[in-house]
């Protein structure tokens, strides 16, 4: 049953967005190029692993926009696919939906997770003024295949992450180049972002974790950066490591962008040294 609901919701949002893109509305893409960011693995505007204090797509005040993205992460023993869609109202509020599928290669099975998320820009601006853009957000997650998480000691098949983020781009900051930085704090009980369930039967968690990203814009279209995502380690049976990546972002125009990365995800479900490539293709309005 749930798979039908998920497919329906995803198609519904995608259809809405497609209609929005096709409709001859007033140009809804007034943000500066690349300030839409990418779409991170939980479907929110961000880098690859970290949600940023940016809102999806190119809508400024009085406009609406959004993004649709497909992302693949291939590390030694796992293959993660993410399909996500996000809408942005007036560069103030973002709502998003994402569907994750984690293929566990050695066991030849997969774990699915769905995420509905919201983000509110409290104040500040990524480009203008002295204050960074500041957002608060929530990510509601449901893991659809609970057998393995349960076996590893997870307490719940659903949970909510709460986040607060700050983002700023400094013009002409380093060697004549623009520098971007983001810091995110997250309150979470998710194990491996929720793919291994939430909390632990021994009662550990939830906890606060910190995430950060930096990027250097080589020009208006290319950005080179790195990310770090601290992770909780609630499950007694398997160790969970912090995640990190180095990425290259390409923003040829306001309709299309690509983020390619090399990610080190450490130990996942008892399988150590999981690292590999990340690729995300995003369509924005």
């Amino acid at each position: 049953m749930s798979i039908f609901i998920r497919t329906f919701v995803l198609r519904y949002v995608t259809l809405l967005l497609t209609l929005g893109l096709a409709a001859p509305t007033v140009s809804a893409d007034s943000k500066i190029l690349a300030t839409a960011g990418g779409q991170q693995i939980e479907g929110q505007a961000g880098g690859g692993l970290v949600p940023w204090a940016l809102l999806a797509g190119y809508a400024e005040a009085g406009e609406w926009g959004g993004s649709v993205a497909v992302t693949g992460v291939r590390v030694d023993d796992f293959d993660l696919r993410v399909t996500g869609a996000a809408v942005n109202f007036g560069n103030r509020f973002e709502a998003s939906i994402a569907s994750q599928q984690l293929k566990v290669q050695p066991l030849n099975l997969s774990i699915d997770q769905d995420i509905l998320a919201m983000k509110w820009r409290v104040g500040g601006h990524v480009l203008y003024g002295n204050l960074p853009a500041v957002t608060v957000g929530a990510q509601a997650k449901w893991v659809r295949d609970f057998a393995i998480p349960e076996l590893l000691g997870a307490a719940d098949d659903h949970g909510i992450d709460f986040t607060a983020s700050a983002s700023k781009l400094w013009l002409n900051a380093l060697f004549g180049r623009n520098v971007f930085a983001n810091v995110t704090l997250r309150h979470t009980e998710a194990n491996q972002t929720g793919l291994l369930g939430f909390g632990a039967t021994d009662g550990s968690g939830p906890s606060w974790v910190a995430e950060g990203s930096v990027a250097l814009f080589l020009n208006h279209h290319w950005a080179l950066g790195a990310e770090y995502r601290q992770k909780p380690d609630h499950l007694a049976a398997v160790k969970e490591d912090d995640w990190r990546d180095v990425f290259l972002g390409w923003f040829p125009n306001k309709r299309f962008s690509v983020i390619a990365a090399y990610a080190d995800l450490g130990s996942i479900a008892g399988l150590t040294d999981q690292s590999g490539f990340y690729l995300s293709l995003q369509v924005t309005q």
């Binding site: 943000k31 500066i32 400024e60 005040a61 203008y128 002409n172 004549g176 180049r177 208006h220």
Partner: peptide, 27 residues
């Protein structure tokens, strides 16, 4: 509006690009 301000910034960036102004000078 911020949207109009941004659109004018983008016109200026396009003008700087068209005149071959290096990225560091633009920034």
């Amino acid at each position: 509006s911020t949207a109009q301000f941004n659109s004018i910034v983008e016109n200026l960036i396009a003008a700087l690009e068209a005149n071959g102004v290096p990225t560091s000078t633009q920034n």
